[in-house]
């Protein structure tokens, strides 16, 4: 009886890398079945489409100047124009590309860096663990935006540097999460079995452990993406993002000087940020519901 209970508790033993992909696919489908997950997923899908089809959707080139500046929303300019006559609707459409690139790039970068560090620390333990996790703590002490601003202050604000800075600021969260997962899984029986079978550490880490550790990590990737989008928007709002790239935050920076005369300059780009972040958060929430069985259904409430 104890045997069957034990077998039931340990997860199924995947041995192919494709299982990781399968696990991710299965998770995505499960998310779509949750209320928040489906809504968030739909928002994200919409945003991806807008970003891909931006040249078809946007009525103007984002940098081209229309004859009227500070024009309120109308049929020709659905979201109005800014102080130099650019069409805000087109700017917001193209800004989607920037935000999604930042979100995706920074989140994947943080996953790669943090995931590797967490994996190594969690699997090997001992001195590797101590050193790596102390470094993670080092980076985690300061607020993300302070770290990013600090980097931008010294090294400039090109788009790719910005992504790098965001990755450097957020990887520790990912590292800690993966670390925790690997600590939990490290001593499970199927890992022992793999060790006995003389498989390499890399094989065990990537093929045996990764598929089992991946789910909560995806939640964090979605949250990381929302943090990255907010940071980029914040930097743009401070006028410190890459001036060569259209960004929602920058539009808010421009709006700051025209608050009394052109509300549309602030409202629409800001709403776009909210939508993107809400989409990611809803998605992460749905994901969380799938991953953490304790949150499935509702166990709270007191009669």
């Amino acid at each position: 009886m104890t045997d069957s209970a034990g077998a039931h508790q340990s997860r199924k033993v995947p041995s192919q890398l494709s299982d990781t992909a399968q696990s991710i696919w299965g998770t995505l489908r499960a998310i779509a079945s949750t209320r928040h997950g489906a809504t968030g997923g739909a928002i994200l899908l919409l945003m991806v489409l807008i970003a891909l089809l931006a040249p078809l959707i946007a009525p103007y080139d984002p940098q081209s100047l229309t004859p009227s500046s500070l024009a309120p929303p109308s049929w020709t300019n659905p979201m109005g124009t800014d102080s130099i006559g650019r069409d805000i609707f087109s700017l917001v459409i193209y800004g989607t590309q920037t935000s999604l690139t930042i979100g995706l790039g920074a989140a994947l970068g943080a996953l790669l860096l943090g995931g590797t560090v967490g994996m190594l620390a969690g699997y090997f333990g001992g001195i590797v663990d101590t050193v790596l996790m102390r470094i993670a703590e080092l980076f985690q002490t300061l607020p993300v935006i302070i770290l990013v601003l600090f980097t931008v202050a010294f090294f400039g604000s090109s788009f790719w540097l910005l992504i790098t800075a965001v990755i450097l600021a957020i990887w520790p969260i990912e590292a800690r999460l993966v670390y925790g997962q690997y600590l939990r899984l490290r001593n499970m029986s199927f890992v022992d079995a793999a060790r006995v079978a003389d498989m390499s550490a890399a094989h065990i880490m990537l093929r045996e452990l990764l598929p089992n550790a991946i789910q909560p990590v995806i939640v964090q990737v979605a949250l990381d993406a929302s943090v990255a989008i907010l940071i980029e928007a914040g930097l743009g709002f401070l006028g410190l993002s890459d001036p060569n790239v259209v960004s929602w935050g920058q539009l808010l920076y421009d709006a700051q000087s025209y608050m009394t005369v052109a509300w549309w300059m602030s409202v629409f780009p800001g709403a776009a940020i909210c939508l993107a972040v809400a989409g990611l958060n809803l998605f992460a929430d749905g994901l969380n519901e799938v991953v953490d069985p304790r949150t499935r259904g509702r166990k709270g409430g007191l009669q």
Binding site: L230, G234, Q256, V267, L275, V277, N281, L282
Partner: peptide, 18 residues
């Protein structure tokens, strides 16, 4: 609360000012 949490506080500030 999930939706409100998605509002960046600096934009909320701008909207409040507006």
């Amino acid at each position: 609360s999930l939706l409100v949490y998605a509002i960046p506080s600096f934009w909320l500030g701008q909207i409040l000012v507006l």
